[in-house]
């Protein structure tokens, strides 16, 4: 589609090259790139991201470095402290804590991050659409939210989990996420109601920008802070919720382990046999911390007023 040029611009393009200097290297539609650059400027955020990547690598590559896996038992070593044979020590029945911790880390990282991502994502889209469109979409979506809010999530998951037993634990992620997005969705809807009336949204509407594009381009970035905080908190929350459910016999079941089950089993002997608890607990803290650093960095990168992310 050609844009008709006006006399002034024709004059300008005759005078020199058609692109003014400085535009060449800068991208139009480059918000993503700009945010990335601003994110990379935040040292703590980058550290957090690196830690997360290392944790993932560790969780999935680490098990190959040790001859033990999370089910095997060493009958020559019960409750041994860390040694060169068992790097993180062993449990009461001779399981290798290193192998178990890494196996748990795999599960918890994926469950935690995925649940947080899915739950905040649903909340953002549902809330923003309800708030932006109003009318009957709003009413229908809010009915769903209210319905889910009054259902006791724990009971529903408990009732449903025998049906899912033996199937992929990814279903578990879906269940956890499916019951944790409603309150955020209500908050997001409130914000969207306010943003909908703002002039920049009207301007976009008058320019003919489609509604869903407005939701994703204007509404969600302007509530990024709350979404990121919500997602960050959800990571820890999901890992803990999974622990609680596993403790009652739903979710991750032995012989499989998660960080949650490991911590639950280890707390009793945290002071007497600290290796049972310290490694899994420490990794959980490290994960949540790294996620929150990344979240902070992302929030500052998206927020143009954050001084720390500005070019120096």
């Amino acid at each position: 589609m050609a844009i008709p040029t006006d006399p002034l611009l024709v004059a300008a393009s005759e005078a020199g090259e058609d692109v003014p200097p400085g535009v060449e290297e800068l991208e139009v539609g480059g918000r993503g790139r700009l945010v990335l650059r601003r994110f990379l400027r935040r040292r703590l955020a980058v550290v957090g991201l690196v830690v997360l990547v290392v944790l993932f690598a560790f969780a999935f590559v680490g098990p190959f470095l040790s001859p033990w896996d999370h089910t095997s038992k060493d009958f020559a070593a019960f409750l041994e402290p860390p040694s060169s044979r068992h790097w993180f020590g062993t449990t009461q029945i001779g399981q290798d804590v290193y192998a178990q911790t890494l196996r748990g880390l795999q599960k918890s990282l994926v469950i935690g991050l995925l649940t947080a991502f899915v739950s905040t994502g649903i909340a953002a889209v549902v809330g923003a659409c309800a708030g932006y469109f109003g009318g009957w979409p709003d009413r229908v979506l809010m009915w769903v939210v209210d319905l889910l809010l009054v259902l006791p999530a724990f009971l529903v998951i408990a009732v449903l989990s025998p049906t899912f037993r033996g199937r992929s634990w990814l279903l578990f992620v879906v269940l956890l996420a499916g019951f944790s997005w409603m309150i955020t969705a209500r908050v997001v809807r409130g914000l969207a109601l306010g943003l909908r009336e703002r002039e920049f949204v009207q301007a976009a509407r008058f320019m003919g920008v489609p509604s869903m594009v407005i939701v994703f381009r204007h509404l969600l970035p302007n509530m990024a802070s709350i979404l990121i905080i919500d997602a960050t908190l959800n990571v820890g929350g999901a890992i803990l919720a999974e622990t609680g459910l596993s403790y009652f016999g739903f979710g991750v079941q032995p012989p499989d382990v998660s960080l949650g089950t490991l911590i639950a089993n280890g707390t009793r002997s945290a002071l007497t046999f600290p290796w049972l608890f310290l490694f899994s607990g420490g990794l959980l803290v490290l994960t949540v911390l790294a996620v929150s650093f990344v979240g902070d960095g992302l929030r500052d990168a998206l927020d143009p007023n954050a001084a720390a992310a500005r070019a120096r």
Binding site: V28, G29, G30, L34, A204, G208, V209, R217, H218, D303
Partner: peptide, 16 residues
């Protein structure tokens, strides 16, 4: 939009 760089703001209508 306070969260959009000027280039994106100007390009929005063109993109649409």
């Amino acid at each position: 939009d306070p969260r959009m760089p000027v280039g994106d703001i100007l390009a929005e209508g063109l993109r649409a």
